[in-house]
């Protein structure tokens, strides 16, 4: 594996191997000195064309715990609206001998385009509405470890609720969770379900009340205020009434069911309950787990050395 661009590129075995390695990395994170020399001498650059402090810090912490050197390139969105400098930026950074780019961009497909302009590994840290594979791996790690079934989600039903249309998290999660055997139900108004999502391996419903009492995981998506302006929903109040996670809906959830959210939450709109008051909430666990999962991804791409071994003929 050279790049991690889309969760759709991962096989079931890839996912299981990454999650198992994340267990290993999680143990490192519990040590008095949570740092190993695995990626000494490797340089990881976070290239964040769209600001996301939490994802960037998660990746940089992961890289540092593996002893990689980290650099940050952040660009204001305004200067990139025209997009002219993208190729130049990447070629310039590549010339500094970078081993991996961690890329966040507001436009779908940019991490994939970048692979044409560099020899370094490229990790998609979120592109447009397209993909956010490390978030989905983190979520799969969180769910499988919560249920104690590290290699499968057979028999589990996961509802992904809200603005699926604009959600890279949803697209990545659909790919990862279904490959682990879960049944995924998309719940949202038709305006926020992608066109022809019926062709995806999911079930589509338009009422949270219909499923909230039956699913193993309620995965809430962020609902942005500006969606009202382009008539996706009549009002945020109506959205919350139909699709917000309210105390009443939490009270109807199965006893073992989990509540998840990729963050940042829009309190009072997508999340009406205080997650701290919900025993099944794994929202903070998702943040914690982001680090070992990203360590596993970085180590798999930069440290497993499969292709280099062939090139050097090393036999030890």
């Amino acid at each position: 594996m050279k790049h991690l661009l889309s969760a759709q590129d991962l096989t079931q075995n890839d996912i299981i191997a990454l999650l198992d390695m994340a267990d290993h990395m999680a143990e490192i994170n519990t040590r008095p000195v949570p740092k190993v020399p695995a990626l000494r001498g490797k340089t990881v650059v976070s290239v964040f064309f769209e600001d996301s402090t939490r994802t960037r810090l998660s990746f940089e912490t992961a890289a540092k715990r593996l002893s990689a050197d980290t650099m940050t390139f952040s660009a204001s969105t305004s200067s990139l609206n025209k997009g002219e400098s993208l190729r130049d930026t990447i070629e310039t950074l590549s010339a500094m001998r970078v081993d991996a780019f961690v890329v966040r961009h507001k436009s779908s497909g940019v991490p994939l385009q970048i692979t044409e302009w560099t020899d370094a590994s490229v990790i998609n840290a979120g592109d447009g509405w397209h993909q956010h594979p490390t978030q989905a791996l983190t979520d799969a790690f969180t769910i499988t470890r919560s249920f104690g079934t590290p290699h499968t989600l057979e028999g589990r039903t996961i509802a992904i609720v809200g603005d699926v249309l604009h959600s890279r998290v949803a697209r990545s999660n659909i790919a990862v969770l279904t490959k682990l055997g879960a049944k995924v139900v998309l719940v949202g108004p038709s305006t926020l379900i992608p066109i022809q999502a019926q062709q995806w391996p999911v079930e589509i419903l338009h009422s949270l009340d219909e499923v909230v009492a039956e699913v193993d995981v309620v995965y809430m998506l962020r609902m942005q205020r500006e969606r009202m302006e382009t008539a996706f929903v009549p009002s945020l109040g109506e959205y919350t009434a139909r699709f917000g996670l309210t105390p009443d809906r939490v009270s109807r959830m199965l006893a073992h069911a989990l509540v998840m959210h990729p963050g940042p939450m829009n309190r009072g709109i997508d999340m009406v309950v205080d997650p701290a008051q919900v025993s099944g909430s794994r929202i903070l666990q998702q943040v914690t787990n982001g680090i070992p999962v990203r360590m596993a991804v970085l180590f798999t791409l930069l440290g497993s050395g499969g292709s280099t071994a062939l090139a050097t003929g090393a036999d030890l």
């Binding site: 779908s108 497909g109 509405w129 397209h130 992608p194 066109i195 999502a197």
Partner: peptide, 18 residues
Amino acid sequence: AVMHEGECCSSLGVPGWP
């Protein structure tokens, strides 16, 4: 809009041209 509005555009996460 970036491309034809259909399943492909939904998967790629770009606005569709219906």
